[in-house]
Design a protein around this nucleic acid. Structure first.
Length: 591
RNA sequence: GCGGCGGUCGUCUAGCCUGGACUAGGACGCCGGCCUGCCAAGCCGGAGGUCCCGGGUUCAAAUCCCGGCCGCCGCACCA
């Protein structure tokens, strides 16, 4: 019974979503294109509130260290060459000419021949397949040529075809490329979190599962830059969350066939289940963030990826999983330890200095040797060769120069003898006040569309044959509905319109509804998850109070209309209904 | 991309097998009016359909055939 209910929960939600305007497949009037979804009016409101909640948990509460930026969707190809996506986001695929099935060419060759072909080019894979006569593992059919599937959306920047651009498949590169600027703006200190919310594109081969797997979607992501040698200083808020409990399934546990286990953050880090304090901290924040959206902690766990399952940049990754009715456990976030891979690669490709200066507590005196070239002597001796020679001499190791001078009184360079009077090695004392380090990065990255979907799924209730979306009050797309008890009484209608306008002026997202019976209107509002209903009735005309109804209990209290905005604000923050006014007797069944 | 199943007002669906009387019917929802003193009540009226798209067979196609698109399931894929 429960299974049957669960299995069509997805159907019910997509039907509701289309009917009431939460989401639907894009380009419907042209037949649709898979992998693209529109968010409708209430979907956008809900999504915005969830994004705002994420900002609150990840950015605002850590504003001393975490800032948000926005960077472009399109990047020049070099960015994704540096990031490794041009190389690694590409799969070599072969098609069986007999049955049409597609396979990863490298996997097939490795399985068939038992040798590693990692890093082989398409041509090499093709040659091996022909030489060794690798065939379709299903029906033994001959294989076609190896093709390359790159999941990056490719485009062109400006009028020249040679200016290749790509749509970003993740936000991270935007933060890495802008790292130097943001660090400067944040006065050069670590730890530094750079967050971003934005659209990305991945040209999936065959996306399905509604908005669980899309070709274009929104990510909420943070790159948290730390000094790897200072695990404690990198996570100054660790203690606040050290008791947060998370269900974790490590790779080893998975191999042994075990179930996820509960760990406090502190245990997980101490037991080395999580390799880094910051990684663990942000997982704990992520756990609380998802719980604040109404996802129970039992319906979540963190799934550690094995070495071969991880992305090319990661040394540990946990997927944050949430259970949904139709597809079982799905990934809503990835929590990765990216090390210094990305910054190092961008330093290499851009030649920019992306290091962070880490001051010592006390400046250190460092003695070092330096080569001093006497250019006037050198110039007189070697004339036009002297500039070139000076450059080479400066590049030598001081110790080697010293050694040569001591042994033979001169330095041999390019076949020339440079005598002692033209070059000497001196010892200098330098005050060094710090060192340059390449920060490591911890990355929590959320797929917004999936998060919104699971939020809807966990908010879905059926009550007396009616559908209620019981969103947590503070993320409900619409916060209140204002209703005159009867639609044909001008006095009630006028009063309700005034209250509606007042609430709009106060900054709330509010509906006004006077069409149909009061019960129908409550039901309509419940269906899109409006947490509060404010009804103007005949008592309002007498004593100026209105009723405030709780979507989840259907209980009502009377509140003075002049205080309704405050009461609503408190209600949305989680105040108990009973504390906001005087109870209305069970009014539902009165004759 | 392969295989299976499916696609009809906003939504859910009847009709399809067995081609024609289908001017594609119903329910819910939506809009307007009446009624209604608190949980999808009732009455009247109304709007709303490329029967997924294209081609074919036929005197005649929502219905049969082929191709495509989209969806679901399985396989493959998912840095």
């Amino acid at each position: 019974m429960v299974g049957a209910w669960l299995s069509d929960l997805y159907e019910k939600i997509s039907e509701l979503a289309r009917r009431r305007g939460f989401f639907w497949p894009s380009y419907e009037i042209y037949g649709g294109v898979s992998g693209f979804y529109d968010w409708g009016p209430y979907g956008v409101l809900l999504k915005n509130r969830i994004v705002e909640k994420w900002r609150d948990y990840f950015v605002r509460r850590h504003q001393e260290y975490v800032v948000e930026i926005e960077s472009p969707i399109v990047a020049p190809s070099i960015v994704f060459e540096a990031s490794g996506h041009v190389e690694h986001f590409t799969d070599p695929i072969v098609t069986c000419l007999k049955c049409g099935r597609k396979f990863r060419a490298d996997h097939l060759v490795e399985e068939a021949l038992g040798v590693s072909v990692e890093g082989y080019s398409v041509e090499e894979l093709n040659r091996i397949i022909r030489e060794k006569d690798v065939r379709c593992p299903v029906d033994g059919g001959e294989l076609g040529d190896v093709q390359v599937f790159n999941l990056l959306f490719k485009t062109q920047i400006g009028p020249y075809a040679s200016d290749v651009g790509y749509l970003r498949p993740e936000l991270a590169q935007g933060m890495f490329v802008a790292f130097k600027r943001v660090l400067e703006a944040m006065r050069g200190r670590l730890p530094l979190g750079i967050a971003q919310v934005g659209r990305v594109g991945r040209n999936e081969i065959s996306p399905r599962q509604a908005m669980i797997r899309l070709r274009e979607f929104t990510i909420m992501e943070m790159e948290y830059f730390i000094d790897p040698k200072d695990p404690h200083g990198s996570c100054p808020f660790f203690e606040e969350k050290s008791g947060v409990k998370m269900r974790i399934l490590t790779y080893d546990m998975r191999v042994r066939g075990e179930e996820p286990q509960w760990f406090t953050l502190e245990e997980a880090v101490e037991d080395k289940v999580i390799i880094d304090r910051c990684l663990g901290y942000w997982m704990a924040v992520g756990q609380e963030f998802m719980e604040s959206l109404g996802i129970p902690s039992q319906a979540m766990y963190f799934h550690e990826k094995g070495a071969h399952e991880r992305a090319h940049y990661s040394s540990q990754t946990f997927d944050q999983m949430v259970k949904v009715s139709r597809w079982g456990w799905i990934e809503v976030a990835g929590h990765s330890y990216r090390g210094d891979y990305d910054l190092s690669r961008h330093m290499q490709y851009s030649k920019a200095d992306l290091t962070v200066f880490k001051p010592y507590k006390e400046p250190r005196i460092v003695k070092s040797k330096r080569i001093v070239v006497n250019k006037s002597v050198l110039g007189r001796m070697f004339r036009e060769k002297s500039l070139k020679l000076a450059e080479i001499l400066q590049g030598l190791r001081p110790e080697d120069v010293e050694e040569q001078l001591r042994r033979q009184g001169c330095v041999l360079v390019e076949g020339f003898k440079v005598p002692g009077e033209a070059i000497e090695v001196i010892e200098v004392e330098e005050k060094v006040s710090g060192e340059k380090i390449v920060p490591h990065v911890v990355e929590p990255s959320y797929g917004v569309d999936r998060v919104v979907y699971v939020t809807i799924e966990y908010a879905y209730r059926e009550k007396d044959g009616r559908v209620v979306l019981a969103f947590p009050r503070d993320i409900a797309p619409v916060q209140a509905v204002v209703l005159p008890l009867l639609e044909n009484d001008d006095t009630l209608v006028r009063e309700a319109r005034l209250i509606y306008k007042d609430l709009v002026r106060e900054g709330f997202t509010v509906l006004y509804d006077d069409s149909g019976s009061i019960g129908r209107r409550y039901a309509r509002a419940d269906e899109i998850g409006v947490p509060a209903a404010i009804t103007v009735d005949y008592q309002t005309l007498e004593d100026g109070t209105v009723t405030l109804r709780d979507r989840d209990t259907w209980k009502q209290v009377r509140v003075d209309k002049t205080r309704i905005a405050d009461a609503l604000r408190m209600f949305l923050r989680g105040a108990r209904l009973e504390d906001l006014g005087t109870p209305v007797g069970s009014s539902t069944q009165q004759p």
